[in-house]
Design a protein around this nucleic acid. Structure first.
Lengths: 378, 378
DNA sequence: CTGTTAGCGCATTCAG
DNA sequence: CTGAATGCGCTAACAG
């Protein structure tokens, strides 16, 4: 019923081995023979059997791209960019040549699912795996990840991190593209301070995430450098509506804890966390959000409280997603070159580009000053 | 070096077949035996060889989800939702049980890449394929797609459409979830007309796309019903900056053509097409955009021209993406239940849900009236 | 309920 | 440059 390589061989009057050779193109074959074989392939409408091929070759043409939340353009942009480098432009025939199958796996931010997908990819003998976005900083999970990745690398799977710092015990087997979240966070807060803000609220992402921690650390570095981390009062711990907890970051003084609310990286969380923040500290003049999506929620909350942006309160985001420039007022944020980073990760996964020296490259984050931040009143 | 099923069998003192049976769980096995096997699996840290398994079983656990643009939340939400139904929640062990590998393939809206991905999926003997979003209405491509899908279905791959109408010559082999784009478009324009608008511009998506055509048809239906499709002048054909062409829709009168500008489904296109529209017809009092992303660009253009929304011009979108409610003013749009549709498509792909009667279900679109539309001045 | 036996379709040694 | 033979690791009949 289904046409096999042998059928093609018969029709082209060559051996199966020869057909295999022209299809894989990594072996000398006479031009005339190749011609004949390709014609037979088209005539018969032959499609290679991937599993059989992978079984024999002990490797597949699958490349996995893990993301935390594919509904978030932050990940969509990186994943899409990576795919452009992996899937190949196609030859316009739809016949599928040597290109790999770049597939996106949505972990939903769950450590378990992350591990499960890695196992699934290991099972498929994936050629490479790209891990995007922040990692969960849980010792048990980190150990499990390290073990799993080691096994994958061992089986010949190339490992690339994109927008994620390398594992603490990370070996040189992986290439890592890390965003300068700390530097970006610092410069953003420095900008607010230079504008004259002294009480700055922070709507952070979920705890136990590298991205969350680094951005928050940058924020606090800036505060400390400006001498704004003193604790006028001994603010008590408190949780936001979304079940988050006050930041327990290394640098947090009591007051800073009070000015920090954690929550998921989504709009709703930004909204609720901001209300909580305004309740706790009605005198904040600026709010820094974990990312642009959260910032949008923060803006809505600020407005619903009857305050104007930036006249009454400045709001800033992070990432510079496409919609951020269209917010009203346009969002001050930190631009991350998501597309470029994703594309580079894709190339690294394909072995089309050499890993950075030391295996890790830091991607610069650029401050984008726009209308949502201004000097405080008075 | 790499541990195989036979190794597990030896350690568990059973036959390879038995191990296979407990792993696949679709065959009776004594509890004690299963226990022993599972322990051996864990002890040996065994991971099934996917290709070998797929080869022997003549089917894989891969499910492909095709999207036009994964950086667009419209697709991200559907794809993510589908994956929740396919990937399985995991058993918390990261061991990967019977779950499928749901993978997202980003076609970038290119017909060639769509076909290529389908071939790649066919090569992998995918268990199912979910095609999301609008289709390209090009006869040659449609024929190629029909042929390819027929072959896939023939090989046992389940085909599901999500947010895309079934192919003209579509057989009953596929289940289709189609959005009511036409009805949504009609109600949206009816809403504007009821507000008193008479000159309504339309920033359409790319031509040759079902989604584009259906939404535009709905728009024109509403105009016609209100007697607004007359052609006061014989507007000449004209293209937008983004290389788009004036709508050649079936119902387009000369004037309507002049009030319609096509372009890609992105923010920039919305911006430029709107400028073009305002140049062509400075007297429009409302602009309907192909989707929310385009609407955001339209809003920016309107503002950059010194006009206010909705006082000077009303703007409406389509899809009701998460950010739309946060636009200022909040965007009037048509809500599509993207998550629910994606999840249902995922279930259909898994065979966990029965196909709708006739194989095709229409998903209702709900008008969301918000601040960006109001009665025209005067 | 469990073991035995055959391939699944292809990539690769080796010869020629 | 090409053909013949071998086995990748697993599942699916069959028996028992």
């Amino acid at each position: 019923m289904t046409v096999t390589l042998a059928d093609v061989a018969a029709r082209a009057r060559v051996s199966p081995a020869t057909v295999s050779r022209v299809l894989n193109g990594n072996y000398p074959v006479a031009a005339s023979t190749r011609e004949r074989v390709l014609r037979a392939v088209d005539d018969l409408d032959y499609v290679l059997n991937g599993p059989a091929s992978s079984l024999a070759a002990a490797t597949s043409d699958l490349v996995g791209i893990l993301v935390n939340d594919i509904a978030d353009p932050f990940f969509g942009i990186m994943a899409g960019a990576a795919q452009t480098q992996i899937g190949g432009p196609g030859d316009g025939s739809g016949r599928a040549g040597g290109e790999k199958l770049a597939v996106i796996c949505n972990t939903g931010g769950s450590p378990e699912r992350e591990l499960t997908y890695l196992t699934l990819l290991q099972r498929q003998r994936a050629a490479a795996v790209v891990l995007t976005g922040g990692a969960v900083e849980n010792p048990a999970h980190q150990a499990a990840m390290a073990a799993k990745l080691a096994k994958l690398a061992d089986a010949g799977t190339r490992i690339v991190f994109c927008g994620r710092p390398p594992l603490p015990e990370g070996d040189a087997l992986v290439a890592a593209l890390a965003f300068d979240n700390r530097g970006g966070g610092r410069r953003l807060t420095e900008h607010l301070i230079s504008l004259g803000h002294r009480r700055i609220g922070y709507v952070a992402g979920p705890p136990e995430r590298t991205t969350t921690r680094h951005r928050l650390e940058g924020h606090r570095e800036a505060l400390r450098a400006a001498g704004l981390d003193a604790a006028p009062d001994g603010g008590a711990e408190a949780g936001s509506d979304s079940g988050a907890e006050a930041g327990g970051g290394a640098a947090g003084s009591g007051d800073q804890d009070r000015l920090t609310v954690h929550g998921p990286y989504d709009r709703r969380s930004g909204y609720e966390a901001t209300l909580e923040l305004l309740r706790r500290a009605p005198d904040v003049t600026a709010i820094v959000a974990a990312n642009d999506t959260v910032a949008l929620g923060a803006c809505a909350a600020v407005r619903d409280q009857g305050m104007r942006i930036p006249q009454d309160i400045s709001v800033a985001g992070f990432d510079d997603l496409p919609f951020s420039v269209d917010a009203v007022p346009a969002l001050t944020t930190v631009r991350l070159p998501l597309f470029e980073a994703g594309a580079r990760a894709g190339r690294l996964a394909m072995g089309k580009e050499n890993p950075p020296p030391g295996g890790i490259a830091t991607i610069a984050a650029e401050l984008m000053i726009r209308g949502s931040t201004a000097a405080p009143r008075g």
